[in-house]
Design a protein around this nucleic acid. Structure first.
Lengths: 129, 129
DNA sequence: CAGCATCCTTGGGGATACTG
DNA sequence: CAGTATCCCCAAGGATGCTG
């Protein structure tokens, strides 16, 4: 799915062991989706659509399918009128929790440094050479 | 840089605290680059180009600039003939180490489950509804 | 409601060629 | 060597409209 070119895994020695995870967990929009399901529980399609600002239904569908296929979320179809579909995080998806915590902790500690570096670079740091 | 649309941070309450990190750390090709510098130390441009299979010089330059701007790597220009440029990881970049370890540990434990889920989905799991 | 179909746009990357 | 400069392409993503 997606970026075949990133598949550096073909060369075992030089492979970056993080690469496979990136395609699974950090595709566009996936972290807000997983985050929403993780934090606020079960969601219907529209609820996700509303919660995640800016996403279009088409793309939301695509991402949900991908996440379902990867086993990170569970989709439940209720054959009613009007139809109702619910998405919830799976155990596998929940296992990403500590990882996300780690990530947001890193952000909390270091994001300011990154922005500082950017300011410095933009003012005077243009590459000499 | 890149995906402005992902900037869900505008809405504080619903914001996914992980989102900002994603743009910084998990852009395309950044993890192999950081991984190489982290694991094998200082690199010249060609060395990186050779180590990271499939990347083009143009894109490598782009990513290196981005990482330098974000303060995750340090670029050193040696005014010699022929010119020599060296890239190394910064302290800030090195602070991602535990995170990467966490990621690759998650991969080790759960990647097989993901692939299993995919196989199951592809065989019989097409969304009913 | 929860989507799928269709059309269209865009810009990230790829390929190639060229300099200081 | 370490990049820039161009050109080009395609697939992710947006917009819109329609169904079970």
């Amino acid at each position: 799915m997606g970026r075949a070119a990133t598949d550096v895994t073909s060369d075992p020695e030089l492979a970056c062991p993080v690469a496979p995870v990136v395609d699974i967990v950090f595709s566009r929009w996936t972290t807000p989706i997983l985050w929403s399901l993780q934090m606020f529980g079960r969601h219907r399609f529209v609820e996700l659509e509303r919660r995640i600002t800016g996403i279009t239904p088409k793309v939301l569908t695509q991402r949900l399918r991908q996440l379902e296929r990867d086993g990170l979320i569970v989709r439940t179809y209720h054959p009613e009128v009007p139809p109702r579909v619910e998405y919830e995080i799976s155990d596998l998806g929940r296992s990403l929790g500590p990882l996300f915590a780690h990530l947001s902790e890193w952000a909390g500690v270091n994001l300011e440094q990154v922005e500082q570096a950017r300011r410095r670079y933009d003012e005077s740091g243009a590459p000499r050479g």
